[in-house]
Simulated scan of single mutants.
Amino acid sequence: MPDHGYSLREVQRMLGVSRSVVEKLVAAEFVSPSGERRDWRFTFQDIVMLRTAQALRVAGVSPVKIIRALDHLRKSWGHEGSLTGVRIAAVGDRVTVRDEASRQWDAETGQLLLDFDGKPAATNIASLQAPLANRAREDATALFYRARSLEEENIDAAESEYRAALARVPDYTDASLNLGGILMDTERFDDAIAVYREALRYRPNDPVLLFNVGVALEDSGRFGEALRSYELCIEHAPDFADAHFNAARIHEELGDAAKAIRHFNAYRNLQKGS
């Protein structure tokens, strides 16, 4: 992948995590961005680890268990090449790992788990297998980075490159998010909504996409639809603080004080815990 990597702003936009969450994972050395703090650059593998932590939290695994599991995974499985093909899953309140030989391990303790029914672990959260194996994805990735480099100097060219990337790989969520961001910045809200909803065809429960649809709908004045999108986001990611905040504002605008207070309280509690 290109050397410049992903910025913190892009990581937050793609994953829907707060700056403090990312900073805690950096401090714990789960991810090691390059550059100074004000200009961090994250690799694709960093994104995978951050997305894994976020997805495990959404699946109901406690932060303590996530930290212990990822720490053990990093120390025990982190030597070069060993993460290829590994799948991480939330099974109840336990984080499990399934390796290339289909053996299942407790990620927190490293204990081998016996799989009596021979079925794969339910609720797969993330795969650390290299996702850019085919030529189409390689081409789309090159277009994605070219688009990012053009955003400040030639926004029209950047938009064209993002669309070209999506033409090659329609389920390239990061390209959809960045393209939608350009369309939002240029106040083409209906076009942004269309891009986000197309992306939701491939990831229908993605809270970041649902949140962005809500923002686009709200900015276009469609408050009822925006509220439904925020509520869907919260349904799939109850700790998505900004979705609670935006839902609270709309409820307040619509005169439903009780629901507004409930979401404001949720937002404040999440901010305290972040």
Score class of each variant (00 low, 15 high):
65 K>I: 13
65 K>H: 11
65 K>Q: 14
65 K>Y: 07
66 I>S: 00
67 I>R: 11
67 I>P: 02
67 I>S: 11
67 I>W: 09
68 R>V: 09
68 R>Q: 15
68 R>C: 05
68 R>D: 11
69 A>N: 02
69 A>M: 02
69 A>H: 00
69 A>F: 00
70 L>I: 08
70 L>K: 01
70 L>G: 01
70 L>C: 06
70 L>Q: 05
71 D>Q: 12
72 H>N: 15
72 H>F: 13
72 H>G: 00
72 H>D: 05
73 L>R: 03
73 L>W: 08
73 L>V: 11
73 L>F: 13
73 L>C: 06
74 R>V: 04
74 R>T: 10
75 K>P: 00
76 S>V: 11
76 S>A: 14
76 S>M: 09
77 W>N: 03
78 G>D: 07
78 G>E: 07
79 H>G: 10
80 E>M: 10
80 E>S: 12
80 E>C: 08
80 E>R: 12
81 G>F: 10
81 G>K: 03
82 S>T: 12
82 S>C: 12
82 S>E: 14
82 S>R: 14
82 S>W: 10
83 L>E: 09
84 T>N: 14
84 T>G: 14
84 T>V: 14
84 T>Y: 11
85 G>K: 03
85 G>P: 02
85 G>D: 05
88 I>P: 00
88 I>R: 04
88 I>Y: 00
88 I>A: 00
89 A>Y: 10
89 A>V: 05
91 V>M: 04
91 V>H: 03
91 V>A: 08
92 G>V: 07
92 G>F: 03
92 G>S: 08
92 G>Y: 04
92 G>E: 05
92 G>A: 09
94 R>Q: 14
94 R>C: 07
94 R>Y: 05
94 R>W: 06
95 V>N: 01
95 V>A: 02
96 T>F: 02
96 T>L: 11
96 T>G: 06
97 V>M: 10
97 V>R: 04
97 V>F: 02
98 R>N: 05
98 R>P: 02
98 R>K: 14
98 R>C: 03
99 D>E: 08
99 D>W: 01
100 E>F: 09
100 E>P: 02
100 E>H: 09
100 E>W: 12
100 E>R: 15
101 A>P: 05
101 A>D: 13
101 A>V: 11
102 S>C: 10
102 S>D: 15
102 S>I: 08
103 R>W: 07
103 R>K: 13
103 R>F: 08
104 Q>M: 12
104 Q>R: 13
104 Q>I: 15
104 Q>H: 08
105 W>K: 02
105 W>D: 04
105 W>S: 00
105 W>H: 02
105 W>R: 06
106 D>F: 03
106 D>A: 01
106 D>S: 04
106 D>I: 00
107 A>G: 02
107 A>H: 01
107 A>R: 01
107 A>P: 03
108 E>S: 11
108 E>T: 09
108 E>L: 04
108 E>A: 12
108 E>V: 03
110 G>H: 03
110 G>M: 08
110 G>Y: 03
110 G>T: 07
111 Q>M: 11
111 Q>L: 13
112 L>K: 11
112 L>F: 10
112 L>G: 03
112 L>R: 13
112 L>E: 12
112 L>D: 07
113 L>T: 04
113 L>Y: 00
114 L>F: 14
114 L>Q: 15
114 L>T: 15
115 D>C: 12
